[in-house]
Write a protein that binds this DNA or RNA. Sequence first.
DNA 1: TTTTAGTTGTGAATGAATTCACAGGAAAAA
DNA 2: TTTTTCCTGTGAATTCATTCACAACTAAAA
Lengths: 227, 227
Amino acid sequence: MTSESSKKHPTPTRRISESTIHRLSVYYRQLAILESEGYHTVSSKELAKREKLTPAQVRKDLSFFGSFGTRGLGYPTTELKQKIANILGIDKLWHVALVGAGNIGSALASYKEFAKQGFELNSIFDNDQRKIGSNHKGITISDIGTLPEALKKHHIEIVVIAVPASNAQKIADICVATGIKAILNFAPINLKVPSDVVLRTVNMSMEMEYLSFYLCNRHNIDVPGKG
Amino acid sequence: MTSESSKKHPTPTRRISESTIHRLSVYYRQLAILESEGYHTVSSKELAKREKLTPAQVRKDLSFFGSFGTRGLGYPTTELKQKIANILGIDKLWHVALVGAGNIGSALASYKEFAKQGFELNSIFDNDQRKIGSNHKGITISDIGTLPEALKKHHIEIVVIAVPASNAQKIADICVATGIKAILNFAPINLKVPSDVVLRTVNMSMEMEYLSFYLCNRHNIDVPGKG
DNA sequence: TTTTAGTTGTGAATGAATTCACAGGAAAAA
DNA sequence: TTTTTCCTGTGAATTCATTCACAACTAAAA
């Protein structure tokens, strides 16, 4: 961590929309590309063009967190990338545990993008005796019964749930009871967590259903994002 | 398909938001649960309570597509579920192809929820000679070079892309050229497709980044959905 | 030095999504 | 039959997100 990254960005006074946070992730990726292409600065216009957004949107999103640009010049590529990393909290290492070593869990354990962004997966849990003790990409699979103590011992901050829908709520409850405040859920079920715990659910069937709706309706109606 | 399901719902006259479509998927799942619990009717109040939404939101979402309820009574559970299936287009069989039989691709091929919702995965493609010809859950993995003709031959309507980011755009271009109008992308890259093709991208790193942002900021600011 | 071209940051205007509030209707109780 | 209770469907009001439009500033050219 550089001294740069530990400098705090101004605390936003207003509610930040989910869309804005999502776009910050998008800007971060595009800035990495611009950096690799040798650009030292980038304008909101160029950034917007590359992501099919409006320049005003880019500037407004960034303005919630501070003034990072120079009038007449644009934004310094590397510095802005670093600032966004700081805003998103990805300029530090997060300790992540994975629960469920089935099909999706195994795929996630092998997913290299996580590590690249500072998400360190160092614990995997399962309830299948045949899997417990075995090695997956250098990580030993632990008994799910040891989840509470292991979460504390390894200072886990984020739990990825990839167990069948029928077990997911039970796992979520254990995580919440152990003090976990962030859960990424792949089970196709609406988990209930307290309001101070942030939950993101990736439901692949629902993504397919969106595509299906569009295929059925694209001749009749406008669809968002399809100017 | 019943005669019920082929009856057309009224064409919406106004743009339907992504959020509304997403919530229709949510209602659909909750209606299946209510049905299994023996409820013949359900009020917008009850449906809202179970999904942490407002009753007005539920009624408004449904009203874009027609009048499905009875004043004083609520909505007929089974019938409404069927109507939503019809709106979403999941009361028919969709032909789906998967490109990429790596970690994520393999997990998706084994994902049972797809088949349950009428998404029939009947073709898998890869460029790895060791995988081509082998069997995955009863589906032979084909050479990616045969993609264009195979998409036509099997009447594929939806393509799931699960190849590395570096190859994803190339695959998307092939799909678009072959006439595919719906793509579900798992590669961590912003694919470019024409405006008449619907694209959904699932980027797991971005989901993690959202959690990270929340963990960093929950003490300072409001976060959407966390009243 | 002055002018011109370029770009940010932000209050105001606009547009979109959600919630309110109530007329209209259905069923059950009185 | 009449009254009461319940619930939908929807126009209006409100809240939230995006876009506009321009003052403020920078750099480079004249």
